[in-house]
Design a binder for these strands. Sequence first.
DNA 1: ACACTAGTTGATAGACTTTTTCAAAAGGAA
DNA 2: TTCCTTTTGAAAAAGTCTATCAACTAGTGT
Lengths: 148, 148
Amino acid sequence: MNTWKKILADSGKRITRPRQAIIDALRCCDKPQSPEQVLETARQSYPNLGLATVYRTLNLFAEIGVVRLIQYDGTIRYAPATLGHLHPLICIECGKTVEFHGDDDIVDVINQVEKDTGFIVSEHLLQLGGICPECQSKQAENGKSHGC
Amino acid sequence: MNTWKKILADSGKRITRPRQAIIDALRCCDKPQSPEQVLETARQSYPNLGLATVYRTLNLFAEIGVVRLIQYDGTIRYAPATLGHLHPLICIECGKTVEFHGDDDIVDVINQVEKDTGFIVSEHLLQLGGICPECQSKQAENGKSHGC
DNA sequence: ACACTAGTTGATAGACTTTTTCAAAAGGAA
DNA sequence: TTCCTTTTGAAAAAGTCTATCAACTAGTGT
């Protein structure tokens, strides 16, 4: 059984066709999507899907950790979240998003900050941006002709 | 001349009373604020301020790096940004926000990620959350009586 | 397989948030 | 001060998100 199904079931929630369609939509393209985009994508496999359900489901999934909120272009978008403490790395050209594992390394940062500020740090948000290998190739091909 | 004024002037923008009031509002309380909250605070020193101006100004300030967007409670809020690469640390009880310097340490993370993924990393978003010293004291005083 | 029950859904309306528009006002250079 | 351009406030428009509710459905027990 898939992890997200198990998490839902364990918390007394149901596994429904709309929810399945929304998960699939999030996973089909590896870019963070807005609720509107999720609706559009998910309707390809489940045409009856309503917008309200998308919002409800994204909120639910965010709560149980199945999706993650990503700050992109000044707004908040959604991407599937692998369990375990992974962080998103987003291409600022094409939006392609991959995950990386960086917790071991930021433990040092957190320890230092706790010492300096007296805070007890309990959560962190780490998000990197850059240019993915594909977009690097494209830029090399096109030369400096157009910054796109 | 204050940094934000210099940045504005250098990019051909004007230093106006509404903008001054908005900066002051952001700085007066050390919590990330919503546009609506900024309006309310800034009107204490400039009662005629309009909501549209708050939105326009926050967007402008975000572009030139004078304010920073903070993901708080599922929404995006605004806080003044000290120049230099500082990151926000937000109290999840009271919202108090301080800045910390953590770039030296995440350089290692970034190098590793670049090696692993082939991305060229050019930006990062790091935000920590926890309990500030004041809220720690309060919790200690009140015992376990109410999780608040 | 069937029926039952509580969680879930889609559609619409409503609330809220953000942007656009435009005439009036104000900053800053000469 | 004068002039030109940017900026502003108010209102309208557009966009985003949530609440409501009858109809539907997943998952349980029979």
